[in-house]
Design a protein around this nucleic acid. Sequence first.
DNA 1: CGTATTTGACCAGCGC
DNA 2: GCGCTGGTCAAATACG
Length: 246
Amino acid sequence: MDGHQYISHKEKVENLKLQLESLSRENENLKMMIEVISDRYNILQEHVQRKTEERMSGAITTNSLGHGGIGSNKMVTADPVVKTSQVFVRAKPSEKSLIVKDGFHWRKYGQKFTKDNPSPRAYFKCSMAPGCPVKKKVQRSVEDESILMVTYEGEHSHGVPYSTVVDFSSSPDHSLVSANLFRSTIAIDLTQNLATDTKNEDTCKRVEEYAETLTKDPNYMMALAKAVAHSITKQIIVLAILEIDP
DNA sequence: CGTATTTGACCAGCGC
DNA sequence: GCGCTGGTCAAATACG
Ligand SMILES: [Zn+2]
């Protein structure tokens, strides 16, 4: 009697094991597909960027040909509205130098010692797409050496680096990395909302604390993961359609 | 060999 | 103008 039950249980376990195995394989395959697709997506994005740039430059040249003496209205491009956002990020204890791993590709173009901070400040420019104007400054916090102060400036003229999502799962200690990246994105959003009224350090610190409490809340993390997954699947669907269409 | 980083030179703004 | 400071350039160098 018990033997039958035991056997059936054993069978169930074996069955579940097999299912798990096949699901794991499927998961691996899907991961690989995501990687490939994101790769192609980035390439396509690059092409689109180049094409629009070509078209823009052509339009500008044809436009500038017809510049009579009429106007004198200088097209002062409202550049002053460059969105800057400050982000506090926990420094990885292992990293000796300034971070680079936030999903974009940065080319370092300078490093200076500043008057009011013993640690140097590094200057980066986004190099994911040619002509992307985004820059960032990275400097350790004065009082807490394990806090990195990152200042992003401008908006990317290309698609967001979709491959970062893939990096989450493929990273050896993905929990740490993903926590850091999630927090950084949260901090970006919050600082952008708060940047209009106040700009002192206390609010920034409070933002960081707030983000930390958020990441500790399991419900919030679950909702966030759900949202991220949803956006991912949406992107995948779009990409699949694009792939079928041509 | 092509590309990314390093690092001193260089420049622009500001207070005096 | 002068010196200081934060930001950028670019030649040299390191790296894979
Ligand atoms: Zn960019």
